[in-house]
Amino acid sequence: MSEAGGSVTAVSVIEARELTKTYGDFTAVDAISFDVAPGESFGLLGPNGAGKSTTMRMIGGTSLRTAGTLSVLGLDPERHGPEVRASLGVVPQADALDEELRARDNLYVYGRYFGLPRAYLKAKVPELLEFAQLTDKSDAKVTALSGGMKRRLTIARGLINEPRILLLDEPTTGLDPQARHILWDRLFRLKEQGVTLVLTTHFMDEAEQLCDRLVVVDHGRIVAEGSPRGLIQEHTTREVVEVRFGSARNAEMQAELAALVADGQRSRAGLEVLPDRILLYTDDGEAMLEEINRRALNPLTQLVRRTSLEDVFLRLTGRSLID
């Protein structure tokens, strides 16, 4: 590639510094800074209302920032929106498909918005429909498509300009497990081709599957940053024991269990008390469970599992991701 952004492959494709967005008194994004490298798959992880979508919109220049600086492929999206978006593919949370047009025309018309030539689109649209497994739906009205199909059509639409960066805002929210796996597969193929992916999600498994690196966002601030594996190692233990005592006894068991995890464990060990269950972080879950049973604490249910990003978030904020 010979154009401006392409010659500086070593530097970040997105560079945000103290990026801030306020709506009246409400601070949606609170001075966050991050970089995204070319070809990287970068995730913004956080609960609803954490400021993820607002950040995505600022990257595309469709939301104006309140303070801070932002550079996308060397340009300020606020001042060069159309030019920045020429290199972006955007998959918004609400599909925002054109319901007055058929599936095929959605792609074609969208390509024309990018100023792409008709001849290019005539070849590209069928190719993308096939990629999205929608070839037999090409004449269907958008309103007649299932949720998963709409999502795939939206992703296909986001690829019409062969973007260098694909922005995906909660790509699989509301999809059934099978549809999610199809979608992850498609995204993984794009990643293999060197497309930079920036995605928001509140699903841990999605972040673990797709992201090389992610930031955990809460109340508009970055509370942690790293690879999925790195974050889990840094912020939690190897395993977690989940025990339920029923809503009445849940709180009163806290003191007893706290003493348990404190026994000669590493600093990352500890417990989280959720409304319905208590999580005990430990490197040896089975041993912990044995100890609980030896002390005859009699939980209603018990479970040992590997820690996940959900636990990272819990440890950092004391709240569940899907708030």
Binding site: E127, F131, Q193
Partner: peptide
Amino acid sequence: MDAPSTGPTDVMAATK
């Protein structure tokens, strides 16, 4: 089916 081509030529070059 492979992912759609994002070949070496930039299809958006003229628009940019």
